[in-house]
Design a protein around this nucleic acid. Structure first.
Length: 147
DNA sequence: GACATGATTGTTGAC
DNA sequence: GTCAACAATCATGTC
């Protein structure tokens, strides 16, 4: 469980703050650098958080702090059993498969771009990615399996 | 008006 | 193998 690192750094918030600060700071820079790069897939915890946030908001409509939601979500996540986490893990894996496909298309696009067909392929690749995205939604696993 | 920050865990990518 | 960065969220504060 590498996530424990976060806990270790909980004491040294500096590192985490730096990370987040860097993330926030790089957010734009990085986005400008690789706007087409697929975003990282949510982990099981984040998939869980998507639902937890909604529930948390309903139970705590006055709470406007995302930090509080994160804290509560983290505590609940730790209190959950593997069986309870299972559906979220499954969803996360599904997202991961999709991410892998997107990364393949992204890497391919990069290779094409280096070959000297950046602009043209850029648009084309987009279509490809889109096509894969739409088509791949249902056949993602099959495609992976097929491969 | 636009961007950074606050907390959480997991996963990925890089070294 | 280890560590840093990043993924979502959104009201609020700062510039």
């Amino acid at each position: 469980m590498k996530g424990g690192r976060s806990k270790a750094e909980d004491n040294g918030n500096d590192t985490k703050l730096k990370s987040r600060g860097a993330k926030a700071g790089k957010r734009k820079a990085k986005a400008a650098k690789d706007p087409n790069k697929p975003k990282r897939p949510p982990s099981a915890f984040f998939v869980f958080m998507e639902e937890f946030r909604v529930q948390f908001k309903r139970e705590n409509p006055d709470n406007k702090s995302v930090a509080a939601v994160g804290k509560a979500g983290g505590e609940k996540w730790k209190s959950m059993s593997d069986a309870e986490k299972a559906p979220y893990v499954a969803k996360a894996e599904s997202r991961k498969n999709d991410y892998n496909k997107s990364m393949k298309a992204y890497n391919k696009k990069l290779a094409d771009g280096e070959n000297g067909v950046e602009e043209n392929e850029s648009d084309k690749s987009k279509s490809e990615v889109n096509d894969e995205d739409e088509d791949g939604s249902g056949t993602a696993e099959e495609d992976e399996d097929d491969d």
